[in-house]
Design a protein around this nucleic acid. Structure first.
Lengths: 188, 188
DNA sequence: GTCTATAGAGTGATAGAC
DNA sequence: GTCTATCACTCTATAGAC
């Protein structure tokens, strides 16, 4: 049996993913986690504190899943393909990326820092794989790793936006498939 | 002197851009537009009605600006470059794309439809420019216009997400510059 | 560690005067 | 067409009993 604190964090993470920060109330989190008001304010100083913990929780989950995808395969292209093909739910949006639109999140360093860290890490990690691919002679020597890494991450995050706008997963897949084609084009 | 109704729509559009739908209250819109509660409920049936009008207003503005960018230039590459280099405020996010994360927006067809229409139009319009480029012999004949259009739009929308996450415009520019490089790579 | 009661502010909307 | 008053409800948080 998990501690109430964990239930609160998981319920908060789910609701932040679904509704964002401003539109998620402590009462909703309590209801979903079956925790009372007293429990929540015992474990956390308030909404922002619980949300900060939930964001770090979500970012950590996504980072570990990403690391697994990028850590498999033998070639750089296989690893990046695995990242682009990670199991995702495009219509739900990105559990981390979706939070950056919320002005209450970007205004609070406690909430924004773990998100910024995640994307800085992700960009660097993908650029690293590209550099390794160049060194291994798999990718063209004139590959701009930083630029290509930006495009790959933007394809995923932008793909989420398009999928939600059209309410169609296909829009997400088109963007990630296009990114894969472009990557295939820099193969030696 | 503009009618109060227009002030309400413009204030609502600004606030939707800054805060999203759920986190924007009628009171905020009234305050910014200097319109009273009575005025708002005289011109609109409620928050959703005003927001729907404001979303159509923003989508129309962005569509016209995009049409101008895509309509200039002589080659397909110049037009797409102009689109990627349109005057934007990356840290503010996309006035249309940012709304799709809001579950209250995606749940209400009145609110989601103009957003979906905008992105469907944008994707088609960019794919058209690519097809024209192929026909004119400027771009490679094996260009997948639909895939490339998805990547271009995703680069912009994803670029916004990255810029807001890192609170740095550079993240946006890296994504759009990368998209331009990829486009340059399909030139004949 | 969890409960209920309560607080002051804000929510979205309606009523009726002017 | 705009104003103020009011409504029932929800928001985030605190207090104090158990």
């Amino acid at each position: 049996m998990k501690p109430t604190k964990d239930h609160l964090v998981e319920a908060a993470a789910e609701l932040l993913w679904e509704r964002g920060y401003a539109a998620t109330s402590p009462a909703m989190i309590q209801k979903r986690s079956r925790a009372g008001q007293g429990s929540m304010y015992h474990h956390f100083s308030g909404k922002a504190d619980l949300a900060a913990t939930a964001i770090r929780h979500s970012a950590g989950q996504l980072r570990r899943a990403t690391e697994t995808a990028l850590g498999g395969g033998t070639t750089a292209l296989e690893r990046l393909g695995a990242f682009l093909d990670m199991e995702r739910t495009p219509l739900a949006g990105c559990r981390v990326g979706r939070l950056v639109q919320d002005p209450d999140v970007t205004a609070d360093d406690q909430l924004r820092a773990p998100i910024a860290e995640f994307f800085t890490w992700l960009h660097q990690r993908i650029a690293d794989v590209l550099v390794q691919g160049v060194r291994a002679g798999e990718l063209r020597a004139d590959t701009d790793a930083a630029a290509m890494a930006s495009l790959v991450v933007a394809a995923v995050e932008g793909g989420y936006v398009l999928a939600r706008a059209e309410q169609d997963e296909t829009a997400f897949r088109r963007a990630t498939e296009a990114a894969k084609s472009v990557l295939a084009g820099i193969e030696v």
